[in-house]
């Protein structure tokens, strides 16, 4: 097994899949990072992704227009985010529980819409591979990094974008402020709830995009509960990444590569039962959470609704 694993073609294949599979985690976890840095835990990511992935699939199935699919997925994600923001920011609901509500809503509604509007599992032709000229000709590196569909590149592009947002813009400063010390932000004239609305809706739009990546760029089909808990992993990756874009990138890559490895083990029929191999990423996540906790302080006002005193 190990000899085979160390063959360069196999390694390249696993790393290539790792890069590719990380894309939906990246979109969802980076979006969730923005929401959490503003102080809102959106546990409904998986439900938002389900709605986004269905919306994208349906549009592409009916029109064949991939970018229209992406746009609709982002819009549907944003709408789900608006619902979450109303419940969690305005009505100050307990965020872990409201997230479960949003998840169930997305899970049920996407299945319902699928069964009424499409009926049976069908395929679409998703985003094609876009080889980057010159770069994709580099041996090994080119094969692994520059031979993907456009949404994968976009997912990695979001890492520096979110980093710039946090560290170089006034909006990012406001987001961090309302998540760290909302009273101080408020006294400086920042509208805490407005910033939180923006962060939650933005994060949810990214989750919608993550869903679209699944349904029209990776799997190119839609089935009920297509995410299979991916959105919850994305929330865990935010903790793992210490609420920083680079940490989230690292976590997504690690998780996706372990996943790719596990898929390879399954396909090869190596004497580890496949069900146990599938467990591996989840076990890893728990250990990673143990390791990550205590190292990094979470945003001080995370899950705490804001209300002016007096």
């Amino acid at each position: 097994m190990f000899n085979e694993l160390l063959q360069s073609s196999v390694l390249i294949g696993i790393l290539y899949s790792g890069i590719r599979l990380a894309a939906p985690y990246l979109f969802a976890a980076l979006g969730e990072t923005v929401a959490q840095r503003a102080g809102v835990l959106d546990l409904g990511v998986d439900g938002i992704m389900l709605m986004g992935s269905f919306a994208a699939f349906y549009v592409v199935f009916e029109t064949g227009n991939l970018w229209l699919g992406v746009a609709v997925a982002v819009a549907v994600g944003a709408l789900m985010g608006l619902l979450m923001a109303v419940i969690s920011v305005t009505y100050q609901a307990e965020q872990g529980i409201s997230g479960i509500g949003l998840y169930l809503f997305g899970l049920g509604l996407s299945s319902l819409l699928f069964r009424v509007m499409i009926g049976s599992v069908k395929g679409v032709s998703g985003f094609p591979i876009l080889r980057i000229p010159v770069l994709s000709d580099i041996p090994v590196i080119g094969e692994i990094f520059f031979n993907h569909n456009i949404l994968v590149y976009l997912a990695y592009l979001m890492v520096p974008v979110i980093w710039l947002l946090f560290d170089k813009t006034t909006l990012g400063l406001k987001i961090r402020a309302v998540g760290h010390n909302p009273e101080a932000a408020d006294s400086l004239g920042v509208s805490v709830n407005r910033v939180r609305y923006f962060a939650v809706i933005f994060g949810a739009a990214m989750a919608g995009l993550a869903g679209a990546t699944l349904s029209i760029a990776q799997l190119n089909v839609w089935q009920e509960n297509i995410t299979n808990g991916l959105g919850f992993i994305a929330v865990a990756l935010v903790y793992f990444g210490g609420w920083r874009p680079l940490g989230v990138l690292l976590g997504s890559l690690l998780f996706a590569t372990v996943n790719a490895l596990q898929l390879w083990v399954q396909v090869k029929g190596i004497n580890i039962p496949s069900d146990l191999a599938v467990m591996l990423p989840y076990v890893l996540t728990i250990f990673v959470l143990i390791f990550a906790s205590g190292r990094v302080r979470q945003p001080a006002a995370l899950t705490k609704p804001f209300e002016r005193s007096g």
């Binding site: 439900g47 619902l83 109303v86 419940i87 009505y91 609901a93 307990e94 529980i97 409201s98 479960i100 509500g101 949003l102 998840y103 169930l104 809503f105 997305g106 899970l107 049920g108 509604l109 299945s111 319902l112 069964r115 009424v116 009920e224």
Partner: peptide, 18 residues
């Protein structure tokens, strides 16, 4: 489809916590 009830359950949770 019976998934209607899952969606309604989700709304119930959202409304109760809100």
């Amino acid at each position: 489809p019976n998934s209607l009830v899952v969606a309604v359950n989700g709304l119930v949770v959202l409304f109760v916590v809100a």
